[in-house]
Amino acid sequence: MRSPVQNAELALLLEVTGTPKPGNVDRHREYDDLRFEHFMAGAVGSIPGLILAQNGAAVGRAFERSVVGMAEQSAGNTQFGALLLLVPLVRAASAHDDFSAETASEIARSTTVDDACDFYRAFEHVDVAVNDPPSGMDALDVRLGSRAEPTLRERELTLFDVMEQSAEIDGVAREWTQDFDRSFAAADWIEKNDGPVSERAADAFIRLLAAKPDTFIVKQHDEATATEVSERADKARAGAIDPAALAEEFIRRDINPGTTADLTAAALFVALERGLSV
């Protein structure tokens, strides 16, 4: 029987092997500066931080250590958002016999100011695509890294509070504040589907992408592009567009639904923890 850490690593590996995932790196498609091997190395590198989560360490500390290990491969940021989802999920799976969306949400909601400080510190290890902060929020720009700590402590902001402030514009933050609902729903799809798990993961990815615009695409491009991508993913689901052709096009256009990939990795972890056979 695999441990939560082993299931988290396997989830990261299965996510990147799934194909086609329009716009994402998979075993058939890469970007010039972001390759399949980088994601495999990032998954392996994240293990020390995931072990911390499994052993009961604070979420922020475990996350920052996971990011440090992930970033040791030459491409830098490969799975930042996925790890931000996986760390509380691993913590919940390790701490509760009744692993569920509710117990994962309990872990997220019990985070502290120290967790928020460690989360900000994680941004010092990799470049992460983020929007400029809203007016008046410059002191909480995540790009400040540890320099934001005085403000976090002064305002007594926990990591959950930080996620709440970003939930409207960031799909990973929204998962934290909405009981990881999309991750658990996609896990249901994966479990109920059949065939190789990597293919089920790719199907879940397209379903997630079709259901809601990807917030990373909004940051990378704009809302109109994100909406277009979702509409075309829906057509691919319906068989009106070849998913493989769509994947090739999105790679050419540098359209990367990174948040959807993060959710897919989280869904795979949930399904594996609930007994998905691989």
Score class of each variant (00 low, 15 high):
residue 110 S to A: 13
residue 158 T to C: 09
residue 133 P to F: 02
residue 117 C to I: 14
residue 84 L to M: 15
residue 130 V to F: 00
residue 129 A to N: 11
residue 98 D to I: 08
residue 134 P to G: 12
residue 100 S to Y: 12
residue 89 L to E: 04
residue 110 S to H: 07
residue 139 A to F: 14
residue 161 D to P: 00
residue 116 A to C: 15
residue 140 L to A: 09
residue 131 N to W: 08
residue 91 R to M: 09
residue 157 L to I: 02
residue 119 F to K: 08
residue 142 V to D: 09
residue 95 A to D: 05
residue 82 A to H: 00
residue 157 L to C: 04
residue 147 R to A: 15
residue 150 P to D: 00
residue 149 E to L: 14
residue 154 E to C: 04
residue 128 V to A: 05
residue 121 R to D: 12
residue 104 A to F: 04
residue 140 L to V: 12
residue 120 Y to Q: 13
residue 145 G to M: 06
residue 111 T to Y: 05
residue 162 V to P: 03
residue 127 D to T: 09
residue 124 E to C: 01
residue 151 T to I: 00
residue 92 A to M: 00
residue 109 R to T: 07
residue 117 C to P: 02
residue 135 S to I: 14
residue 102 E to Y: 11
residue 125 H to L: 13
residue 105 S to G: 04
residue 125 H to D: 11
residue 155 R to W: 06
residue 142 V to E: 09
residue 114 D to M: 04
residue 85 L to Y: 13
residue 108 A to C: 04
residue 101 A to L: 06
residue 158 T to G: 13
residue 127 D to E: 10
residue 106 E to A: 08
residue 132 D to L: 13
residue 92 A to L: 02
residue 129 A to T: 13
residue 99 F to T: 10
residue 86 L to P: 10
residue 100 S to K: 07
residue 150 P to A: 04
residue 137 M to G: 08
residue 97 D to F: 06
residue 88 P to Y: 02
residue 125 H to P: 10
residue 120 Y to I: 13
residue 113 V to N: 07
residue 161 D to Y: 01
residue 109 R to K: 11
residue 134 P to E: 10
residue 97 D to P: 11
residue 108 A to Q: 02
residue 86 L to D: 08
residue 123 F to G: 01
residue 104 A to M: 04
residue 108 A to N: 01
residue 122 A to P: 05
residue 118 D to P: 15
residue 161 D to E: 03
residue 97 D to T: 08
residue 151 T to E: 11
residue 133 P to L: 03
residue 105 S to L: 03
residue 128 V to G: 04
residue 150 P to W: 10
residue 93 A to V: 03
residue 120 Y to A: 13
residue 124 E to F: 07
residue 153 R to L: 06
residue 90 V to I: 09
residue 106 E to K: 08
residue 97 D to I: 00
residue 122 A to N: 02
residue 89 L to S: 06
residue 116 A to L: 12
residue 96 H to M: 04
residue 101 A to V: 03
residue 157 L to R: 06
residue 104 A to S: 09
residue 83 L to E: 11
residue 109 R to P: 05
residue 94 S to D: 00
residue 151 T to F: 01
residue 148 A to V: 10
residue 129 A to F: 12
residue 151 T to H: 00
residue 95 A to W: 01
residue 128 V to E: 08
residue 123 F to N: 00
residue 131 N to T: 08
residue 87 V to C: 05
residue 88 P to T: 07
residue 127 D to H: 13
residue 118 D to L: 15
residue 116 A to Q: 13
residue 123 F to H: 02
residue 149 E to H: 14
residue 142 V to K: 07
residue 102 E to D: 10
residue 126 V to H: 14
residue 98 D to Q: 11
residue 89 L to W: 07
residue 110 S to V: 01
